[in-house]
Design a binder for these strands. Structure first.
Ligand SMILES: [Zn+2]
Ligand SMILES: [Zn+2]
Ligand SMILES: [Zn+2]
Ligand SMILES: [Zn+2]
Lengths: 594, 594
DNA sequence: TAGGGTCAAGGCTACG
DNA sequence: CGTAGCCTTGACCCTA
């Protein structure tokens, strides 16, 4: 229908305007009064004074409602001519507030006479207007209030026009404008497959280097990056075939070859680590043998994840680490909790523990131990959440920006972006962005309870293998409706377009699918934080101390299940979550680093 | 002139009645005659009502006004529900006399705290009502007086109407003869106005009723709602005799209930503050002590909220409950934590506790005790969060719907809504929606650690006073860009438009401003959950056992600060949060129920 | 939407 | 000083 259309349009305008001028300005800003005045005081044909004049008059009632909405606390009549309060309309000839309206009426009706005790020049404002009736009444008269002249309507009109004029001059609020992602111009037409491949390889190398480097410094600022990592100009790119030449660069997508090269790459990188541990040569030679425990665990893990009903049975046998020494502390926990509640008397009769379902099922011993697991889960979850908040700040800022972009419909930036930017610029920014992220991730995991116990080489391996996973999970909110709102340094919007250019269509599509699936879960930040940690602790073939990792994995599985309990996640959610985990595990593509 | 016509009309009505009545007005009247001239000096040429028709009109207007006043003052409001004196109107929720009105106001405004020295069961009547302030104040509360606007008592206007209605039909006046009933009958002519007014009042009444009802059943489904609560048609409004009969027998009913509740008062409530002073004669004389603790606590609380730097100094003295017996458990906690970490070996070397800033500062003893506070905060926060998730499910569903509406731009529904719906429909749905919400809120708070310890009457009072606050906080996400996306039963969109119709513009605007301010904080759901609990535990003058409440308030202040710590909230956030809290506390408007 | 009306809140001011 | 009756105020509502 026309009405709803019009209405929607109008309202959208309204909302947009509201957004800009809200809350701060409403109280006494004249600039918003401007449209209100013309809206309220004029016949229907004069509605919509701001922009398009395409309005039919029959919408006046709707509009007046909108007008009210838009005005909110701002009043369309400006201020009271007597006391400067907000006016509610034209009363007895002039714009006044309700108070002055009533005051004048009463004064007239009762023929009141007032006397000023302060010198007949009191300044009136909404707070003190009742202090001196004499001056208030005087002001009423002087301002032109008239009791018998009301029917004429001349003064109101004149006043209105005057008010409109005076208000029209006071300027508009300037719309906040944020600069578009423009930057440099031009393009290089020769974005070939070779170049992309070289980019990727280089990226991977840099990543490994970075990880080790940062790790070896305990997370401090990395001092010396390789030269090729710092600056990546186009000319440099063309010349840096040294790496890509190895990859021969013959044909389209690279799954197999990349697979191999990646593995060899990882292997080599690992060994280059300065930590210089003495790994079992046999294990290195045939690390296939280590596969079995992982697979077993993964199977059980996923079984656990799949159907909670099974948990009760499965968990008893599958999770076993703590069951041995648990009983002794079970009592201890109980005693402690009693003491705790005794101390915190106001809470004492309440059951302060959240109800747990999944996490209880996951826990091997169901009874007293639950208590200590509760406490542990609650605390480490808080800890990890806090850590995550710290480290996801940049993402959140970009997210806000993204939302603003979407709200303003400035998706065109996307097109502009791809038109104006060059591949090299994007690439360069991408490379620039990595050290910061790697450092942040390392700092994050180093503070996660238990993870700092992992030996250096395992830590670095895990980081290398899953860095991109972490990145994706952390930045999943920046993937909105099939578009990426990732931002790189130099204010470059790393759109899907560029991602495809750099990572290839297959990977990009997979990535977007994955993120979509993840976003469908609407995980909270806390869940995401725990998700990342869980991913970190998932079995990894290249990890030496897999027992430790498995222990941790149990803890963090319980932790995230505890959080799922808090969030009342249903079985469907759990099933989807499991699918995502599986996808992460099985798909090498995602485990390629960026 | 029209004016003189009017005056003439009035004159006919009121002739001959004035001499006796206007003894007071003589003070003003002589001046009245003179000032016509001073007024004439004003530019308003029309302003000379007294020049020609002069005195007669003057007198008549005076008289009519007087007459109105007199009529109004003698309007049958029945007796004061507190002292049985003649009531002059509805004050703070119930029919009271001027004295009790003023007394209650002074008591609340000045935080008076009274003590009865006669056994807490003084019988109040107009003669002795000043004998015991404690019992008078107690009676005020019991009768349902509420400064914050919640009315537990009768609906004055509805009551009035019903009384008149019944009187007209039966010709029977139960207790007292009211003069000039016919005129009041005439006043009833404006039906729609009265209806809306009655709606609001009834809403308030129903709320109180519901709260008490549900509470008395321990949160179970309330079986018998009053009929008028279930369905609210316009015809019903006029015919609801069931209630009026009950209202007619107010007196007895009240006496009974008062007896009962007085019993409960005696039992658990009355003023057994451990200050335990003997009956100081001076105290008996003045019969009161300051209710200083509240103010002190609030002041400190807000101070603590304001500048965290001050926390260190302030907190030591302001928070004191646990410091006594804390040391013993501090060691215990420490030991427990060691054991805990010993058991959970994989985590043992890590600091599993989140970093806390605000909450630590708030805690009185900074060292070992932090541990147990950590644990407590972490656990109860989880608990409350889970509870909140359970009870905010309907809101979340509506939120999703709202987002869909916004995404589809189907705001037109709003217009359609207002076009097709009638006030009665909205009203009816609104009323329907309330029991569910009240029940949900009660169930929520009953599970919040510590709150179930609060005695029933305090619990009911708090709930009544703050129900709307809870509603607003829980549904804050449904206020989007100046529009409300609240949904009532029967799929009715409770838009701002309807809210204005039902709650009035002022309240609605204030509400939207408030929610805007709150939404600007982007609180997480967990923070909102804790916010609600914090609001529940904020000092309330109408609560008897304020010590317990204060203890809980400290816990939940610490809890929410702990959460702020996790979320890395900055000082600006804290300042804004403090402002919101202050606003909630100070603004009666928000504390009116819906 | 202006004018008129309503009435609870709160201010004022003698009284005790 | 607290009390309480009287009075003004103004946010809200109605109707035309
Ligand atoms: Zn004014
Ligand atoms: Zn003056
Ligand atoms: Zn009384
Ligand atoms: Zn008493």
């Amino acid at each position: 229908m026309e009405i709803s259309n019009e209405f929607g349009k109008q309202l959208r305008d309204t909302i947009g305007l509201d957004e800009a001028t809200n809350s701060e300005l409403v109280l006494y800003k004249p600039n918003t009064v401007n449209n209100g005045l013309s809206c309220a005081s004029t016949p229907a044909n004069q509605f919509n004074p701001n922009s398009n004049s395409s309005n039919s008059g029959d919408l006046s009632s709707l509009k007046s409602y909108q007008n009210k909405l838009r005005r909110k606390s701002t009043f369309p009549f400006g201020k009271c001519k007597v006391c400067n309060d907000k006016a509610t309309g034209v009363h007895y000839g002039i714009s006044t507030c309700e108070g002055c309206k009533g005051f004048f009426k009463r004064s007239i009706l009762r023929n009141e006479y007032y006397k000023c005790f302060f010198g007949n020049n009191c300044i009136l404002n909404p707070k003190n207007r009742n202090r001196c009736k004499a001056c208030r009444f005087k002001k009423c008269i002087q301002a032109g209030m008239s009791f018998s002249g009301i029917k004429m309507g001349r003064i109101p009109k004149a006043e209105k026009m005057k008010a409109i004029e005076s208000l029209r001059q006071t300027g508009h609020e300037p719309e906040e404008e944020y600069e578009e992602l423009d930057e440099d111009e031009d393009e290089n037409g020769s974005s070939s497959y070779n170049k992309r491949y070289a980019m990727r390889k280089e990226l991977e190398n840099n990543l490994a280097y970075l990880t080790n480097n940062i790790l070896s410094q305990g997370g401090a600022k990395q001092p010396d990056e390789p030269a090729h990592l710092k600056d990546r100009s186009s000319s440099d790119l063309n010349n840096s075939q040294d790496n890509s030449s190895a990859a021969n660069s013959d044909e389209e997508q690279d799954d197999e070859s990349n697979q191999n090269s990646q593995e060899s790459f990882k292997k080599g990188r690992c060994r280059k680590r300065p930590s210089g541990l003495g790994p079992d040569p046999a294990l290195i030679a045939s690390n296939r043998t280590r596969l079995q425990p992982y697979e077993d665990y993964m199977t059980k893990f996923l079984d656990l994840m799949e159907i909670p009903e099974n948990m009760a049975e499965l968990s008893v046998e599958s999770v076993s680490i703590v069951s041995a020494h648990s009983t002794s502390l079970a009592k201890n926990s109980d005693l402690f909790m009693r003491n705790l509640l005794e101390l915190h008397k106001p809470l004492k009769t309440a059951n302060i523990l959240p109800r747990t379902n999944y996490s209880s099922m996951f826990t091997s011993s169901f009874n007293q131990n639950d208590l200590s697991y509760h406490i542990i889960s609650s605390l480490i979850n808080d800890k990890i959440y806090q850590l995550y908040n710290t480290h996801s700040e940049p993402t959140m800022m970009v997210y806000e920006k993204a939302q603003r972009m979407i709200a303003q419909g400035s998706l065109g930036a996307l097109g502009n972006n791809s038109a104006e930017l060059t591949l090299d610029q994007v690439w360069s920014s991408l490379v620039q962005s990595i050290p910061e992220f790697v450092k942040s991730v390392i700092l994050f995991f180093k503070e996660v309870p238990g993870l700092n116990e992992i030996n250096e080489s395992d830590f670095a391996n895990i980081l290398n293998n899953k860095l991109f996973d972490f990145f994706v999970i952390m930045n999943s909110i920046l993937f909105i409706k099939g578009e990426s709102y990732l931002h790189l340094p130099n204010n470059i919007h790393y759109t899907r377009y560029w991602m495809q250019k750099i990572k290839g269509k297959y990977t990009t599509d997979f990535l977007f699918d994955f993120v979509q699936e993840m976003n469908d879960l609407s995980m909270t930040n806390k869940e995401k934080a725990l998700f990342i940690v869980l991913v970190f602790t998932m079995p990894d073939l290249e990890v030496e101390d897999h027992e430790n990792l498995q222990d941790l994995n149990e803890y963090y599985t319980r932790s995230i299940l505890y959080e799922f309990d808090l969030n009342k996640r249903d079985l469907m959610f759990l099933a989807k979550f499991r699918r995502i985990l599986t996808k992460l595990k099985e798909n090498r593509i995602l485990q390629r680093t960026e």
